[in-house]
Amino acid sequence: MKVPYISKILATCLLLAVPCLSMAAWNINFQPGNTLLADDIQQLHLIVMIVCVVIFVGVFGFMFYAIFKHRKSVGHKASNFHENTTVEIIWTVIPFFILAGLAWPATETLLAMRDTSSPDMTIKATGYQWMWGYEYLDEGIQFYSALSTPQGQIDGTEPKTENYLLEVDNPVVVPVGKRIRVLTTASDVLHAWYVPALAVKQDAVPGFIRDTWFKAEETGVFRGQCAELCGKQHGFMPIVVHVVSQEDYDAWVAEQKQKISGKELGAPIKLVADSQ
């Protein structure tokens, strides 16, 4: 009686695990970047990691050497030294230089990252509980972008598809190779606009605008999520950015304008109060 029950559970677990295992790679690093800045950041991270690993191996090399050689069980007698001013000064000063060496490239990347001057176009992303609203300031296009994963997939009554929780009804569309400035703000509580491959994460603060930018190097679909706790559906308001060629972008803009031409420009779009 008991055994089949357990084997049933095990079988279910296995069946559930197989699609997950086959889909996900054991990815241990950043998502591949699609902006020069993302590459810079990954480079910077690599430098910091190398420095950390070298120091870590050095320091704990000493420690493990001591653990193996300076133990009572191998008959090591304890020395009695407890001070050495020269050594102490050296290991206070050297880290300063290492840190200064790290601060230099970090500062360069930071300055590039925060330089939002001379963008080619501006998009405003507004965080709502729980979806994103986008407004193309130059084109007058605006729309809402909400999770399109069916509730059944979340509750486990339907099999999960490839872009589970990372798909929306209306993605952001931007041209490739253009400096896109993103203004963020929020309607209710804090949100954060986060697309890993574009190296963009900017909090959206109700009542204020913040700005950030990206310049995509290649076309493609890039997915991210809200990164600031914003209430119960915080995990269910993804961001999808379609980077397309300039022609495709122009065509998309024309299509969007067609859609809104019927309406009075700038009329408030009725917001669905609670998406779920």
């Binding site: 330089d115 939002t116 001057s117 001379s118 963008p119 501006t122 300031l137 400035r181 203004l183 703000t185 109700p206 009542g207 204020f208 605008i209 700005d211």
Partner: peptide, 13 residues
């Protein structure tokens, strides 16, 4: 000199 675009935004509460 390197500022070319500025956004002025108002939020009506």
């Amino acid at each position: 000199d390197d500022v070319h675009t500025i956004t002025l935004s108002f939020t009506m509460f």
